[in-house]
């Protein structure tokens, strides 16, 4: 599903060559994989995640997504890929606070051109699936951390993506709620979705079928298939 060759990311820094956040990253992820990326802070995990999720462009190398070289895709094409193929889950949930739970879930569907009535219906169904039936009209401010993350997960799968990108999804949750979220992620993976997760927690990383450990912008070690 994903193939990266010699991927590089350099951030410009004044009066120097720039800061190299990623160096010669080669990576292959198959459809249905559950990949964990771990490593210390500043090792390039998030940079890699942003490039894989089309939020950022690599400075060098090639990125193939479903066989297509997407390295030189323009902003519009990358937005379309994000909208249709990818679902994001963030550490801080990143819900729109003034919107209700269902409105947050509807948002990516509306961007994708889904009819409002259908989007509303699907948002209710998704909230039921993540165990938040009855919370449809609660704003994000009225939900607990765990509930917010479940809404975020429902939003991530609203457009039926093929890839879920999770950046420290349990980072802001207590251990019990974190486990529930991980169980949900595992369930989604079990339904065929590819999951890429960044985490500091080595125990959580073990849930994945494949773990890559990063250091200083390079892949230091790959564990698993």
């Amino acid at each position: 599903m994903i193939k990266c060759e010699n991927l590089k990311k350099v951030y410009p820094v004044k009066k120097s060559k720039g800061y190299e956040a990623l160096t010669e990253v080669d990576l292959e992820i198959k459809a249905g994989d559950f990949l964990s990326i771990t490593g210390p802070s500043g090792c390039g995990k998030s940079t890699l995640l942003h490039i894989l999720g089309f939020l950022d462009n690599p400075s060098g190398g090639k990125y193939f997504f479903q066989g297509k070289n997407v390295t030189s895709f323009n902003d519009r094409k990358r937005s379309m890929l994000r909208r249709e193929k990818i679902g994001f889950i963030f550490q801080s949930f990143n819900l729109l606070p003034r919107f209700s739970a269902s409105a947050n879930i509807m948002l990516p569907m509306l961007y994708a051109g889904v009819e409002k009535s259908e989007a509303l219906e699907r948002s209710y169904k998704l909230l039921e699936d993540v165990g938040l039936k009855g919370k449809e009209n609660n704003s994000a401010l009225e939900l607990s951390g765990g509930e917010c993350q479940r809404v975020a997960m429902a939003r991530a799968i609203a457009n039926k993506p093929e890839l879920i990108i999770a950046d420290e999804p349990t980072g802001n949750l207590d251990s019990k709620t974190g486990k529930n979220v991980m169980a949900l992620l595992k369930k989604l993976n079990g339904e065929g979705l590819t999951v890429i997760m960044v985490t500091h927690d080595n125990e959580l990383a073990k849930i994945a079928s494949k773990i890559i450990v990063m250091k200083d912008g390079r892949i230091e070690k790959t564990v698993g298939r």
Binding site: G53, S79, R82, F90, L95, Y111, R155
Partner: peptide, 11 residues
């Protein structure tokens, strides 16, 4: 957030 969930620049 909007950009992450698929909003284009035009959106």
């Amino acid at each position: 957030i909007r950009r992450a969930i698929g909003a284009t620049r035009m959106n």
